[in-house]
Simulated assay, not measured.
Amino acid sequence: MVKIGIIGAGALGGTFAALLTRAGHEVEVTARGSGLEAIRTDGIRLSGGYGEVHARVTASERLTGGADLVLVCTKAQDAEAAITANRDAVDGTPVVVVQNGLDGVAIASRLLPRSSCMGMLSIIAANYTEPGHVRVTTTADSYLGRGDGPADEECVRTARLLSEAVPVIAIAGFRGAQWTKLVVNMLNAVPAITGRSVQSVVDEPSLRVVVTASMRETVRVGIAKGVRFGALQGMNDRRLRLFARLPLRLGQVLPWSMRRRMGDRPNLGSTQQSLRRGQPTEIDFLNGAVVREASVAGLPAPVNAALTALVHEVEALGRPLPADRVVAVLHRN
């Protein structure tokens, strides 16, 4: 048994906390507001793909220290503040950043100079249905590593430890895998804008083609940046480079293949879940990251720029937009 601290007990943080507790580890989580109160009162209740788990964990606004390993499971936009708030308890402890986007490991390494920082990409789909309750809609492997080289001994050891609770694979070329996950995360924006599930969006041809366009734009930006895409969920560098050359009509097979892996249990996507809780989204670290990287590479990224703006519009309005606002993105670009 080891002591594991988890910063952020939302959908993924709650999932890992419950499964690690079930595996016999001592778990402490951070949470705020109604989530903290619910976990303190009744623990974390996990349902869905990994079975029913009722995990009693220690919960507070900040970690108390003494952990053997810390997972950072906040949204990308909250990472810097959350790590800073926990720095005294964490610096010097191995840290795994479980996060979307491209910058999480670099941020953690800068803020925690005495810690060995790794990254983890999780394809698990989970809905944070209410405070203290998480439902897993899709089970999947998670991928752990750092940098561009082979998986080092610490990454292999950490993946083995976490795999006692949920499958985690230590991988080489982690930065390239982050870009592949960024392509996967292009499934988030359109459901968030329209208020529909990922499955419903991909099933609708007029919306699926917009998702395809955002994915193709992401891959083309990565290629321009010299990225070698990591193997993830049936995708790899060769297949994504081929996808980047396909017309949109044929490229739609990519989001469709992702949709098939999800099954039919509605997946809202993490961006829409934030909207439904009235919280800021991490869209600036997903589609917005593509726009920033495109600018560095001297390329336009009009589809991702438009989708980023539409998500921010939904944030401001507090309600979804008509689907034709999304469809119009392609007509304008």
Rank of each mutant, 00 (worst) to 15 (best):
R239P: 05
L248V: 11
R265Q: 12
L286P: 03
V303I: 13
R259I: 00
L275K: 04
G269V: 10
V290W: 07
P302I: 09
R259Y: 00
D264F: 05
G288F: 08
R261E: 02
A289F: 10
A309Y: 10
A306L: 08
R260F: 02
S274L: 05
G298A: 10
Q272H: 04
R238P: 04
L250A: 14
E282G: 14
L250W: 12
L275Q: 02
G288I: 09
L246P: 03
P300L: 11
N304W: 11
R249A: 15
P300M: 06
R245P: 08
W256Y: 15
L248P: 13
A244R: 05
R259E: 03
P247C: 13
T281I: 11
L307S: 08
A294R: 14
P300Q: 03
T271W: 01
Q279E: 12
R259V: 00
I283V: 11
L275F: 15
L299P: 15
F243K: 02
P300H: 14
L307Y: 10
T271H: 00
F243I: 00
G288Q: 09
A244Q: 10
G251H: 05
F243A: 01
L268S: 05
R249C: 02
R238E: 09
L246D: 05
V291W: 07
A244H: 08
L268A: 04
M258I: 04
N304A: 14
T308I: 04
N287A: 12
G263C: 07
R259N: 02
N304S: 09
V290I: 12
L254H: 01
V290P: 02
A294T: 15
A294Y: 14
R276A: 13
R260Q: 14
V311W: 05
A294K: 08
R239C: 06
L246C: 08
R260S: 06
V290F: 11
L240I: 06
M262Y: 01
R249G: 06
L310R: 09
S270K: 01
A301P: 13
F285Q: 14
T308K: 08
